[in-house]
Every structure is written in structure tokens, then in C-alpha cells.
Amino acid sequence: MTAPGIVWIVSYPKSGNTWVRLLLSSLAAGGALPDLSRPLPHCPHSAARVWIESVLDIPTSDLLNDEVTALRKEAIRRVALVNKPPFWLKAHDSYDSDLFPAEVTAGTIHVLRDPRDVAPSWADHMAVSLDEAIRRMNLPDFTMAVTGADFRPQARQRLGSWSGNVTSWLDGPPGPVLTLRYEDMQADPADAVRRIGAFVDLPTPPDIVAATVAACDFARLKAAERKSGFLERMGHQRRFFRQGRAGAWRDDLSEEQADRLWRAHGAVMTRLGYGRDGSSP
């Protein structure tokens, strides 16, 4: 992939987006672990006001949601014109051709995770019950970071339901797409790093791949967060890097909760190879 422009790193929340950004940052740094107490280099969150403001130098704190979104679009277009590739941007929104314009897009890395493993992590992130997280994952018009009653540090993001979000990216974006499943990344992280490197035109010699995998190993990330903190941790969270285990839903979810997710998302889960009993082809 050699086209100039933005490589989007997209996913439903808590699906491995940050892990991919860490792998990318680490790979670009020759296998070193990025400083978790600072913003990740080259991988800003495209909805973060602090990023939008840094690109445009226009304050957003007195703006309404639609106005912040309009400036977010301006920032995305501007950064695509100004920055030399590689330039990677994170997003959790459903695909929207207006927000992710084809003319500034070089490609998309789409990260997926079994929604039954997303739910407990998402509940912890939002500080809500597991049932509430599942309810939100099932809402077709779920939107987050709506400023109004209080200030939100991110622009409003239309996530949609888990199924809606995932399929919008499976069917939507123009240009090359690299789809990664969290479970596959965990089973063979070196293969994931090689595929990511090939996709964004970063060299992947074996020693650098091995160093990148080691640097972003979950236990290493947990230890690094304990030591220096993680800038992206939510204020109420004890830690960002929580469990990161594929299939943990068998312990975390009741049968009824797993069933509720399956009823809402079984069709898309089947399409992605997530079986009802947790089998994965």
C-alpha cells in the first residue's frame, strides 16, 4: 500500500485498537515500547478535542456537538494534506463516507473482537454494569461523548450497535482494508505485526518483529502501566490494561448475558467466525 493519506485504525471500542496502535508505534520505533505516559506517536485519536485543536489551533470548548464534528472533519482533511505518510488515525465511529473521506484515505486497519469479550471490558471502561454495556452494544443508534450537560474531551461519536459498527467497516470503506481479529493477533502476534507492517509499508525483519511483540506483550503493558501510568486510562479506571484474554467471557458472562449478545449479533458473529459455543474456525 503506497498511496498517500491517512491509514485509519478503526474498531468498536475495547476490541484491540490500542494494542494495534501500540504495535504500530513500537514497530515504527524499531521494537521499543512507547512511553505510555505520553500521547502515542503517529496514532492520535481522531475524535480527541486535544488532537482537533492541535491541528487547527481553534478552541472547541464553547462549540456544540455538530460544530465540533465539523471541525473534526476539517482537521482530518487538513492533516491528510499536511502530514507526510505514514499517518495513522484512530476511530471508533461507524463508517461514514463524510467523516472518513475516500480522497484522504490510504487504507484501513479494522480490528475485531468477539463481542462477548468486548462487553466486560467496555463495561469497565464506561463504569457501567455488564447488563448496561450489553444494552448499549445492542442499541442501533448508540452515540458516545455527547457534550451538553457537561464537557466531554472527545467529539461526539456515532458507534451504532456492535453489529452495525462492525458491518459498516466490513462493507463500507474505500481502498485497501486489513481486517485483524483480536483472537488471531493473540494466537500469533508476530504474524499480526508482519501483516500490519506490510500494510503500512514498515519493514518487518524478524528481530524487530520479535522485539515489537515482546514490547507489546500484555503482561509487559500491564507492568508498564503500573509503573508509569497510561495517558488513555479513564479517570475512574484502576488500570487500562485489564485482562486481554480471549474467551474470558465464559467466566465473565452469565449464560443469559452471552445469549442476549448472541441473539442480537449472532448473524455477524457467525460471519466473522465466532461460534455460539465459543468455537472459532
Binding site: 487547527l56 489551533d57 481553534i58 455538530d66 460544530e67 465539523a70 471541525l71 476539517e74 482537521a75 487538513r78
Partner: peptide, 16 residues
């Protein structure tokens, strides 16, 4: 959203 002219004039635009 933002333009700076040759003479240092600045045009700032909050869309809508």
C-alpha cells in the same frame, strides 16, 4: 476552518 493571508490577516471559520 483557518486561513492566514500573506499580510498576516487571519480568517477563522466555525462551520455553520
Amino acid at each position: 476552518a483557518l486561513m492566514v493571508g500573506r499580510d498576516g490577516t487571519v480568517l477563522l471559520h466555525i462551520p455553520g
